[in-house]
């Protein structure tokens, strides 16, 4: 039986917490890029593309992230494509995050009034210019608070990456609990660490929300 002191627990959780942060950042940055691309092609309005994006969102929002990662990591080798845990995690988390972000942002873009599109079109702007100069700057203002809010969900969502072998915060907690049989101490520490990562993000979201509301008035 291993003898873990409280410091051993905290220290090992901190080490594992770095994976949580790294996975979250990867997911968020790449998911954001893909989500933005999806948003652009969808807003451009080819009906087939719209249908594809809708199906994409439905698929990745409607199934558990755990199953998505499992199928990417263990399913691809069955068709002869071996992927490392990193490739699988990056790929899976990107799909998942982009599906949510593109949907959040779509709502924000749609809240920009039709008149804005028409006015900018009458000025002879093409789609890219309309997006770049007229729609996105306005949509961005509404989009930032829910986007930062979603980042909290991404941080917590990375816990399922343990199914493909990542020892991140939750997994490290489970491992230590199974060695110490002290679930309260360990999960208490796990909860505190998630809180320390997520709460600043939540505060930031609230700060932005307040700021943009005042601007809007």
């Amino acid at each position: 039986m291993s003898e873990f002191s409280l410091w051993d627990i905290v220290y090992n959780l901190l080490l594992a917490g770095r994976w949580t942060v790294l996975l979250s950042l990867t997911a968020f940055v790449l998911g954001g890029i893909v989500g933005l691309l999806l948003l652009m092609v969808r807003t451009a309005g080819n009906p087939w593309v719209v249908r594809f994006v809708r199906g994409y969102v439905e698929l990745f929002q409607g199934t558990p992230l755990l199953m998505q990662l499992f199928i990417v990591f263990f399913g691809l080798p069955l068709i002869g494509l071996d992927v490392s845990p990193w490739v699988a995690a990056t790929f899976g988390l990107t799909l998942f995050t982009s599906a949510f972000l593109t949907e959040i942002w779509r709502g924000c873009v749609e809240s920009v009034g039709k008149g804005q599109w028409e006015a900018s079109a009458s000025l002879g702007m093409n789609f890219t210019q309309q997006m770049r100069y007229i729609v996105l700057p306005q949509a961005l203002r509404i989009a930032i608070p829910p986007t930062v809010g979603f980042s909290v969900q991404v941080v917590k969502g990375t816990a399922v990456a343990s199914i493909i072998g990542f020892v991140e915060l939750t997994k490290a907690g489970t491992m230590i609990t199974n060695a110490t049989y002290a679930p309260f101490t360990v999960y208490g520490c796990v909860a505190v660490m998630y809180f320390l990562i997520c709460y600043p993000l939540s505060l930031f979201a609230r700060h932005l929300e307040g700021k943009f509301r005042n601007v809007a008035r």
Partner: peptide, 14 residues
């Protein structure tokens, strides 16, 4: 395993 002592669990070095 890493969740099933004494067959497999982690030490303080994980």
């Amino acid at each position: 395993p890493q969740d099933f002592p004494p067959f497999g669990s982690v030490g303080t070095d994980m």
